[in-house]
């Protein structure tokens, strides 16, 4: 009697169900109309099926975004689980679109679906990649900008996973500051 090995047919469950959103920059439509849910997944296999199926960020048009958020959290500041939070922001220069953008984005997704930030993974809401002419941006959003320990853990591990040089500081900004900023720059609450 042959007993099949479950390892071969059972999909590997993720800790969370995730939703991948796509934002298309269509000036004729409202912001929320331009935000579209692509698909949700909760296994490793379904993550790769989706990831392998869609365009890489470097191929998107200017003004477009990908957002991966835990199921039930909308990729916007106003969401209940975002409004008290903030984001670790990584700004890329133009050359990095060719060299780094796609691999940084994949690494970001692996960090999220793999729950790579120990207990601090609880604080993660999602991640966003913005494709912009002046320079692309990557960010990991967390739920509470006062949770310093969790935020610092996420920032340090994220920097390591992207192999960013130690001297290249990245900053964490609260959504509150970002949404109410007067000048072009938002002050950082933390940096690492």
């Amino acid at each position: 009697q042959v007993v099949a090995n479950p390892e071969q047919y059972i999909k590997h469950p993720l800790q969370n169900r995730w939703a991948l959103w796509y934002f298309k920059n269509d000036k004729t439509k409202s912001w929320t109309e331009n935000l579209r849910l692509i698909s949700k997944f909760d296994t490793v296999e379904d993550f790769w099926a989706l990831y392998n199926h869609i365009q890489q960020p470097s191929k998107l048009n200017y003004g477009c975004d990908y957002c991966l958020f835990k199921d039930g959290i909308k990729p916007m500041w106003e969401d209940e689980r975002n409004k008290l939070g903030g984001r670790w922001l990584i700004t890329l220069n133009r050359q990095q679109r060719h060299n780094d953008l796609d691999r940084y984005w994949m690494e970001t997704l692996l960090c999220l679906v793999g729950e790579s930030f120990d207990e601090a993974s609880e604080d993660v809401c999602g991640a966003v990649v913005n494709v912009r002419p002046k320079g692309d941006k990557l960010a990991i959003w967390t739920s509470n900008c006062q949770n310093r320990d969790a935020i610092m853990t996420i920032g340090q591990l994220y920097k390591e996973r992207l192999s960013l040089p130690m001297k290249a500081l990245i900053g964490y900004q609260s959504h509150d500051d970002t949404s109410s900023k007067s000048g072009s720059t938002t002050k950082n609450m933390y940096s690492v």
């Binding site: 590997h12 993720l14 800790q15 490793v44 296999e45 679906v113 729950e115 790579s116 996973r161």
Partner: peptide
Amino acid sequence: GTRIIYDRKFLLDCRNSP
């Protein structure tokens, strides 16, 4: 409680397995 974590090597290996 327990947390289901996957390291990057495992995730990348899964990408290539049929």
